[in-house]
Amino acid sequence: MFLDPLLLNIIITLIKTIVMIAALLGAFAYLTLVERWVVARIQSRIGPNRVGPRGLLQPIADAIKMIFKEDFAPAQADKIVYTIAPGIAIGTALLAWAVIPLGPPLMIGDLRIDLQIADINIAVLYLLAIGSLGIYGIVLGGWGSNNKYSLLGALRSTAQLVSYEIPLGLALVGVLMISGTLSLRQMVEQQAGVWNVVWQPLGFIIYFICSVAETNRLPFDLPEAETELVAGYHTEYSSLKFAFFYMSEYVNILTVSAIASCVFLGGYQGPLGIAPGPHWLILKIALIIFVFMWMRGTLPRFRYDQLMNLGWKVLFPLSLANIFVTAVVLLVIGK
């Protein structure tokens, strides 16, 4: 090659990053449309069908509307905190995608291109760390707005996210014990034959419930319970700042679904190792997100004490038991 390898590497990484962000934001736009279709179907409504054929241009209309809304900030708000909060929310949501392996490496001539921005050997810990930083966006948004409903929503969500982070992390530990690696790529490659969900069914269920809570989705959407809190932490947000919160929520849904696919469902591996590639990962993410939407359409919201009881008295002990049983089995079969 005529280019310096370091420079070439930087250029490739930059291109991958830009493509990834564009793809995520495109996916976000159309997820909102799909969600409205699915929920409309569940509630026997028609859903968006006016803008473009079958409503396909609806997200674009929404985006234009969002951009041209007045960017209003409350007079008593802490301006700096109020402004950086949506940025933190969307920034941490997008950062998580740096370590998700999308497919097996591509070969263009002699050049090997990994379909992953960074293959770091602590990918799982990185995801948990980035996830725990995401709370800042919500907390600061709620506090910075200087509004009672916003603050209550932010405090609820802090308690909820911190509580459910623990069983979420512990549910992943069972898989880590089996795979013996923290790298997502190695983990996916080990699942060419049998997926981890076969060995860790309980871990998968705990992870799934916690990921619903971590993304503030129904039945765990207490941080923005509209009947009690107007709109929770983003009550005072409008225009693009609100759009950033909205985006981060959907990108987070994509992230937890992608992690569930990579850790438990074989990532880009097909069933029985058939034709591995990004199409399998996209299909699995889509299926998991469909379940998210299905739950939103059919389940009522938890009460706050029920939420805490479920997290601390059911999921937390269950995830510890899962680790214990996994350890005993691994010891007995001598792996």
Partner: peptide, 9 residues
């Protein structure tokens, strides 16, 4: 990662 997760997070 531990620093970010435990202290900041």
């Amino acid at each position: 990662a531990a620093q970010v997760m435990i202290y900041a997070g």
